[in-house]
Simulated scan of single mutants.
Amino acid sequence: MDLPRIYTIRESSHRLHNPFTPDKLVILGEALQLAPGTRVLDLASGSGEMLCTWARDHGVTGTGVDISTVFTEKARARAAELGVADQVAFVHGDASGYVADEPVDVAACVGATWIGGGVAGTVEQLGDSLRPGGLMLIGEPYWRQEVPDQETAEACLAGGKDDFLLLPELIERFGDLGYDVVEMVLADQDSWDRYQAAQWLNLRRWLDGHPDDELAAEVRTELTTGPARYARYQRDHLGWGVFALMGR
């Protein structure tokens, strides 16, 4: 059980595996008014940057669960680097279906709602770990504008136009699921650029060092086509944000 290698190659230098900058993560933590001792469950926690920096800056405690052995080890190293290894723990495992042993104050899935088969299933799963009155964090893509055709949708890594919603529709969807949206922090084009463009350098450096690897052809194709595809399609059409929800 692990994440395919291409993901860890593509994002080998990333601390945040989504189109957030460190500044936006700080803004989110401050906006949530996190109190010392807040208990956080972070599903698909990646390299642990959210939990580790919030433990340092706000005194939270918590657990992260991620399917990647590489990212889990990076998260544990980050916790040690920031001196918060006694506050946070990282578990290598499949976050799908994971429920905390005891209710938490914040239950999060930031950018991986596939663990619940989509937004609705992930909201339901996180709700099983959340105490009454707690905060739920969902990171999710949305369309910045109407998508003109199937080609554009697929270039934005969607199966079709219906895979994502426009921002107002996504907010209404959370309401339909019984939650109020009480905060949101959205990626912008600069944070998208930093997320995507850093991948291209990671891919090129890996390719230069591993020309005979079995993944070399796949990496070369992605590096050849990815930048223009991002500039032509994703940059104008694909949004992403973290939404804080509270049950009604």
Rank of each mutant, 00 (worst) to 15 (best):
P141I: 10
G241I: 04
V181S: 00
G64P: 04
D212N: 11
T53S: 15
V185I: 09
A75F: 05
G111A: 10
T69G: 09
I171Q: 10
G139C: 06
R232I: 11
T61I: 14
H237I: 07
W206V: 02
L223F: 08
L245F: 05
A77H: 03
D213N: 14
H58I: 01
A231S: 13
D213A: 15
A108L: 05
D180E: 07
L245K: 01
L167H: 13
R39C: 15
G134K: 00
D162E: 15
E172P: 11
E146V: 13
E49W: 12
I115F: 02
W240N: 04
M1E: 12
D190W: 12
G83N: 05
D86R: 07
G117I: 13
A158F: 09
A158S: 14
G64K: 04
L135Y: 06
L28M: 11
G175A: 09
R204K: 12
P227K: 10
A231D: 14
A55D: 00
A44H: 03
L34P: 03
M1R: 11
E214N: 12
D213T: 14
V104I: 12
Y179P: 08
A198P: 04
L201A: 14
W200C: 07
D188R: 07
V147S: 08
E124S: 14
D213C: 13
E218S: 15
S68P: 03
D176F: 09
V119F: 09
L215I: 02
E140D: 11
P141V: 13
A100P: 05
G46A: 12
N202R: 01
L203F: 06
A55R: 01
E49S: 15
A44R: 01
A35H: 13
D94V: 07
A107V: 14
T224W: 06
V91W: 05
G209V: 08
L207Q: 04
L130R: 03
D101N: 14
L201Y: 15
D190Q: 14
M184E: 06
D57N: 12
H14L: 12
Q196E: 13
I171H: 09
A197K: 13
Y230M: 00
V181D: 02
G226R: 03
G59P: 01
E183A: 14
Y195L: 04
P227G: 15
F20N: 05
L25G: 05
V104T: 06
R15M: 09
R173M: 10
G118F: 11
E214M: 12
L126F: 09
F174M: 10
L137C: 10
Y230H: 00
A108H: 02
P22F: 07
Q125H: 03
A198E: 13
D66L: 01
V181C: 05
L245A: 03
D128R: 12
A187K: 01
P22K: 06
Q33F: 07
V84C: 08
G62C: 04
A100C: 11
L82F: 07
